[in-house]
Design a protein around this nucleic acid. Structure first.
Lengths: 334, 334
DNA sequence: TTGTAAGCGTTATCAG
DNA sequence: CTGATAACGCTTACAA
């Protein structure tokens, strides 16, 4: 059986209060009893039950992380970064994949409340706004990660998607491109912003938006393939494509090659997220990188702040993305 | 403040015992008080604290999952499958990435014990054998997922890696190949088995192992690139390559193409795991698929069994992998 | 410096 | 059918 504080106390001939004190370094204990107790804890391999601690101390040192799909490389990276930061601060993470389903999101939120997590990180486009708002009433701090939603009164840590799109647009124009197609995820707020930023760059550079086709595709293999082939069949092929995720871009490269069209000689493409797909694709994919590690550390920081001090007003932190230059965009000026 | 069972009881003019009973459907309660209490729970948005429940009931309905790296697509799939199965059974998952480090593995195991998880799934090559064995003494059930270790007295649910390697070998031979190079991860037990199975197939078909080069590379981008280029520089190029992971194989395809060598016309390759890399690579990667979904459901099943009945002896379940045929292997018979 | 005892939110065992 | 009450393992005044 797992030893309890009573076992340690008995073995050391002291009271449980004394044991508790050396455990938490509170109060004053003589070096002698302290070392004795420490010794006995070692021998018994005693581990305090954080369940019991949580019941008194009101903290579970656990945070819930809601992602749409952990098998998506971007969210896998996010989960890893969040977990890392959380661990360093003594917190562990309950993983919740909503699979983009309202019901799962709802159920997980209830679960997290039941489990008394100290805070929640939401990295999935929220659907159950009502439940989400009720978190505030229940004093469960939350941070929106890489998404934004005005209807929710949470802290927000996100990439400046608008700027990311702008970076992509300006880069393509600098490289001499003038005819574009955009592939974007429908109904995803960040996707909309990315496209908006992209278009803004075009406008600023005097490109007519009339001629810019926007194709909708989810970041899934078959939808991306369909979009790629749709572009291939276009009467007038664009010189460059802006894809709102790397997966879409990577698949575009492959589909296009199969059709005998080469990247970047015949057509250029730029992605978004800088996931592993961008790194291993051939040619290497030029893309917009979200500063995942930094986003994660800010997110954990915000959340822990909010846990310590529930009354602080919701902050919004927006980090700048950067352009990672690889080989998927041709320089038409040369 | 979060309502407790006392709030509900007071509001309903009953004792907490009664509330507890309707909560758990135990004992006999009149329909009238029952519905009244249910009603009040709704109004108050009452959620029983699973922390408190855990303290009495001895169960947390939480399980720990140790993976080496969640950003590796294989483990991301694994995590998703495990999470899915666990959720259906009312359990949630604490995600622990060891990053292949002994220290993290150790720390996470201690943490999981502190958190009183009901069970632990180990999907990372175990390093801290001592700690791991102590799980048994502490009556924390565990299941090894997709790995095997004789020194540990846990349940095991794994793919038959030996057979997987064998499948790959036999397939290549059927397609007329006779000259092979193997790229494998060093110091990973499953990698060793895969190679062993592969070699066994060759021997069974009368191929001389003398001529088979084995290159070691971790499943990381740069190591895989190095291995690929090493093969390209070989005086006598093999007709087929067996890579022990899809990532290695996918990168091989790209590197080789950059060198003007084409897959499968000039050289064939077969991977392992059937991750997204296999699906999106160009050409599609023929690979050995681990039955992740089934592995996951068996794993959860075993773990829950062990939780219910800690005395059952360790089972070892070995599921058969299957070969997924795509376009990366040339049929030399034609 | 150390010990006693109340309290955290449940469940479960007895009484009524 | 319903209600006291102990127990779970720990923290924290307050006493000694």
């Amino acid at each position: 059986m797992k030893p309890t504080i009573y076992d340690v106390a008995k073995e050391a001939n002291v009271s449980i209060a004394t044991v508790s004190k050396v455990l938490n370094n509170t109060g004053r204990i003589s070096e002698k009893t302290k070392s004795k107790i420490l010794q006995i804890m070692k021998e018994l391999e005693y581990q305090p039950s954080s369940v019991a601690t949580a019941l008194t101390g009101k903290k579970t040192f656990t945070i819930g992380v809601l992602v749409p799909d952990i098998a998506n490389p971007f969210f896998a990276e996010v989960a890893r970064a969040l977990e890392n930061n959380a661990r360093e601060m003594g917190y562990s993470i309950i993983l919740c994949s909503t699979d983009y389903q309202l019901e799962r999101e709802h159920d997980y939120l209830e679960l997290l409340i039941k489990k008394q997590v100290d805070g929640i990180i939401i990295a999935t486009e929220p659907k159950d706004l009502k439940k989400l708002r009720s978190l505030n009433d229940r004093n469960v701090p939350s941070v929106l990660f890489s998404i934004d939603h005005l209807a929710i009164d949470s802290h927000v840590v996100t990439t400046d998607d608008l700027k990311g799109g702008y970076l992509a647009g300006r880069y393509l124009i600098e490289k001499g491109h003038r005819d574009f197609v955009i592939i974007t995820e429908p109904q995803r707020a960040s996707g909309v912003l990315r496209v908006e930023g992209f278009k803004k760059a075009l406008v600023d550079e005097g490109v007519d938006l009339e001629g810019v086709l926007v194709i909708e595709a989810k970041s899934k293999i078959n939808e991306a393939r369909k979009a790629a082939n749709q572009i291939l069949r276009l009467p007038k092929r664009p010189s460059a494509v802006f894809a709102s995720t790397d997966l879409i871009a990577a698949i575009f490269i492959n589909e296009v090659r199969k059709a005998g069209v080469s990247v970047p000689q015949d057509i250029s493409i730029i992605g978004f997220d800088n996931t592993i797909h961008a790194e291993i694709s051939d040619p290497g994919l030029t893309t917009i990188a979200q500063p995942i590690a930094k986003l994660a550390s800010y997110t954990i920081e915000q959340l822990l702040d909010a846990i310590e001090n529930p009354s602080i007003p919701p902050n919004r932190i927006m980090l700048a993305p950067t352009l990672i230059e690889r080989e998927s965009v041709r320089d038409l000026n040369k």
